[in-house]
């Protein structure tokens, strides 16, 4: 089995060969093909986001680190109502990584790029000695043309809060795989969100803010929103979409689904009068579970997120803290 060697990252022949045989093969476009020190592009008002991806296992049900590295960064760009156009990519590869696996991952990046039409315009590869990194890390930086003013600052009391789909799918899937807890039936929701955002922007839905509920899950995003916009968010627990499998998983381990990551679901805050239109649009473009889950109120007692249960009782939805571990209690 062919494996990546240190020499392939050292800037010599082997390095060039890797770039040509693998990266150019899958990422080829006129800008990248120039292979200059820097890519030169035209860009107006630009949304920029960078993220470094490390995930164990590298391949999981519903995706892999490559798909994650593309979707994750283009999603962050899309959340600022910007069309993802360009990406930089940096690979940090542990020597000994199976070449075949790397190729599968690169191919998966390439196919995820098709979803948004974004292009990789510059890249870097490092191969590091065994133990210096856990097999593979990918950094991507995304650049997108801003189409509307969409930011947490615009969240105001009276807004409706929507979620595009079931929460915690990615977090539950990775958790189960990483901890080798033999739990089957979970799939990551990893996907590019730009098509949905584009549909909303094309219909001129006046979105105030969007955020994908990645690390820290729904709980983290809602608490950040409440703090940054100095509001109180009132959420209706029973309508928050959670798949049966994720519910089962979180029951078994005693983990709160609200703190587990999504990689294909995002929150929207928008004027109440536009929420049903937005939900209709989301339903039509691949997000059939999009739903209204709460609203924004004045923060009389300071910023907070309150969950109202099916029984009408209320509780605080807190920021996640600490490691996520199963509990016996």
């Amino acid at each position: 089995m062919s494996r990546i060697q240190l020499a392939q990252g050292s800037g010599g022949r082997e390095n060039q060969q890797l770039i040509r045989d693998l990266f150019l093969k899958y990422f080829s476009n006129p800008i990248l093909a120039q292979l200059d020190d820097a890519a030169v592009v035209e860009c107006g008002t630009t949304a920029v986001s960078t993220d470094t991806f490390t995930v164990h296992p590298l391949e999981f049900a519903g995706g892999d680190i490559g798909k994650l590295a593309i979707a994750g960064t283009t999603n962050d760009v899309a959340m600022r109502a910007a069309c993802p156009e360009y990406l930089s990519v940096g690979f940090i590869i542990e020597e000994g990584l199976e070449t075949e696996l790397l190729e599968r991952i690169v191919a998966s990046m390439s196919s995820e790029l098709q979803v948004t039409g974004a292009r990789i315009i510059t890249g870097d590869t490092k191969v590091v000695p065994r133990g210096a990194v856990d097999r593979l890390m990918i950094n991507t930086t995304g650049f997108g043309a801003v189409r509307a003013d969409c930011s947490v600052k615009r969240i105001v009391p009276g807004d409706h809060i929507l979620i595009s789909g079931p929460i915690a799918e990615h977090g539950a899937c990775i958790y189960a795989a990483r901890e080798e807890i033999a739990i089957a039936g979970l799939t990551s929701d990893c996907q590019s969100l730009w098509p949905a955002v584009k549909a909303l922007l094309d219909h001129e839905v006046p979105i105030h803010a969007m955020r994908d509920a990645t690390r820290g899950g729904l709980a983290a995003v809602l608490n950040e929103w409440a703090e940054q916009s100095s509001t109180r968010l009132m959420m209706t627990e029973e309508v928050i979409p959670i798949s049966e499998a994720v519910r089962g998983f979180t029951e078994i381990l005693g983990i709160d689904p609200y703190i587990l990551a999504c990689e294909g679901a995002f929150l929207l805050s928008l004027p109440a009068e536009n929420s049903s239109e937005a939900i209709d649009i989301l339903h039509r473009c691949g997000h059939p579970d999009a739903v209204l889950i709460g609203q924004v109120e004045n923060a009389d007692n300071g910023p907070q997120v309150i969950l109202t249960s099916a029984y009408g009782t209320q509780r605080l939805l807190d920021f996640p803290y600490g490691e996520i571990l199963p509990r016996i209690c």
């Binding site: 739990i183 039936g185 798949s243 049966e244 029951e251 078994i252």
Partner: peptide
């Protein structure tokens, strides 16, 4: 099996 999730 619990809610569609299986384990041993």
């Amino acid at each position: 099996e619990t809610m569609g999730v299986t384990r041993s």
